[in-house]
Amino acid sequence: MGISTETTLLLVEDRQSDAAFVEQMLVEHRGDFGVSDDPSIEIDAVEHVDSLSAGVERVTDGDIDIVLLDLGLPDSNGLETVSTMLEHTATVPVIVLTGQKGMGVEAIKRGAQDYLVKGRLNADLLVRTITYAIERARISEDLRDRNHQLELINQILRTDLRNDVSMIVGRTDQLRERIDGDDRATVDAILEASNHALELTDTAATVIDVIAERPTADLQPYNLRRVLTAELERFRTDTDAKLTLEWEPDECESVSVAGTPMLSAVFEKLLANAAGDADRTDVMITVTVECTNDRVSVSIADTGEEMSEARKRQLVDPIQSVTAQAGISADWYFVRTVLESVGGDLSIENNAPQGTVVTVSLDRISGD
């Protein structure tokens, strides 16, 4: 839509008296539009047409920022009026003018931004309705743009970049079999870095999935035992770390938590972090699940290196991380993003006598 400081409003109304009344209020209160943090909206021009066909033609020509649409016009009547208008403008907000409140509600269901009831219209209501309709349309357009950008980045990560890195891994692996000595060590380093790049593309693509889904994602009940069991079994097959699982009390084994399909990946990455940070084959990891009436916590304790207090704050504090992005890995960003989307919390403490304890807290929810 591209709302600027100068806004053009199209009034589609066949009754001259009603049109004159609305135009007068718009002119007299043109300086009142806008919201507290962005008062720049100004109705710079009001154009008036008296039929739906003329309104559709004018909107199609472009440079219209908002439409006030009467539902009773010479060439159209009722809800089909708003449907026809919306067919010709995907981004311009449409406010319906109607004599019936119920008709306005139905118009919103069909895609109108809002409605105004004739006979109850005053300047304050008109200004507020137009302002918020413009703001909502602006936010919707920003979301559409963001989603398109995410789709593009997603395609680059999952296809173009991944294909190229996969080719590097394959060719480097072939080259490794043909050389020895110092050159082989160099090739091994390239192969390790390439495999890590593949892992990063997977993580980054999953982060994009979380960001894209978060505004509309519905939380569902997930049986925590099933989620943890699957990830722990996978972890045991991939590492040599010693792993134990404790439920305190035992009844916690049957609890469900509020989550999304991304929840299992959170535990996957935290377990990998517990094993990786220690950088030892004899690391011991203890997973403890505790529950109350409304919350469930999962603590992952390792016997590796302890984190500094600054590092802990950096990983759990989203405000701090804005000024220290270089220290945040994609995996940690992913964990935090998913937890934020499901209303979860993350805390990090030292383990006694050595190591780190990372705790995830989630809402307990009824359901299997």
Results as ranks from 00 to 15, higher is better:
10 L>M: 11
87 E>S: 15
140 S>T: 01
199 E>D: 15
128 R>C: 04
12 V>D: 06
154 N>Y: 15
333 Y>P: 00
276 G>K: 08
224 L>Y: 04
346 L>V: 13
181 G>E: 08
114 D>C: 04
96 V>K: 04
260 T>K: 00
44 D>A: 14
363 D>V: 10
282 D>E: 10
23 E>V: 14
343 G>D: 10
223 N>K: 12
99 G>R: 01
126 L>C: 04
150 L>C: 02
358 V>K: 04
212 A>R: 15
300 I>C: 01
106 E>I: 02
146 R>D: 02
92 V>M: 02
107 A>Y: 01
11 L>K: 09
310 A>Q: 13
72 G>H: 13
238 D>T: 12
136 R>M: 11
93 P>D: 06
110 R>G: 03
35 V>F: 06
167 M>G: 04
165 V>G: 03
10 L>S: 07
241 A>G: 12
308 S>E: 13
350 N>K: 13
217 A>D: 04
88 H>T: 10
2 G>P: 00
223 N>F: 06
82 V>M: 02
322 V>W: 09
341 S>V: 09
32 D>S: 15
223 N>A: 13
319 I>F: 01
248 E>A: 08
365 I>R: 07
239 T>Y: 09
124 D>L: 11
298 V>R: 01
358 V>T: 15
354 Q>A: 12
252 C>Y: 05
209 D>L: 08
232 L>D: 05
68 L>I: 12
137 A>L: 07
200 L>Q: 15
150 L>W: 10
76 S>K: 04
311 R>M: 06
231 E>R: 12
171 R>D: 08
125 L>H: 10
324 A>Y: 12
126 L>N: 04
184 R>N: 03
40 S>N: 07
234 R>H: 07
290 E>T: 14
89 T>Q: 03
234 R>Q: 10
50 D>A: 11
123 A>V: 10
268 E>I: 00
350 N>C: 02
157 L>C: 09
144 R>L: 05
120 R>W: 03
179 I>L: 11
65 D>P: 03
195 N>M: 09
236 R>N: 11
156 I>P: 00
136 R>A: 10
177 E>Q: 15
290 E>L: 05
188 D>A: 01
20 A>Q: 12
63 D>N: 14
314 Q>I: 10
180 D>N: 07
333 Y>L: 14
165 V>Q: 04
115 Y>E: 04
158 R>M: 09
28 E>F: 13
278 A>F: 03
135 E>R: 15
113 Q>I: 01
308 S>L: 09
273 N>R: 06
21 F>I: 05
82 V>F: 00
257 V>I: 14
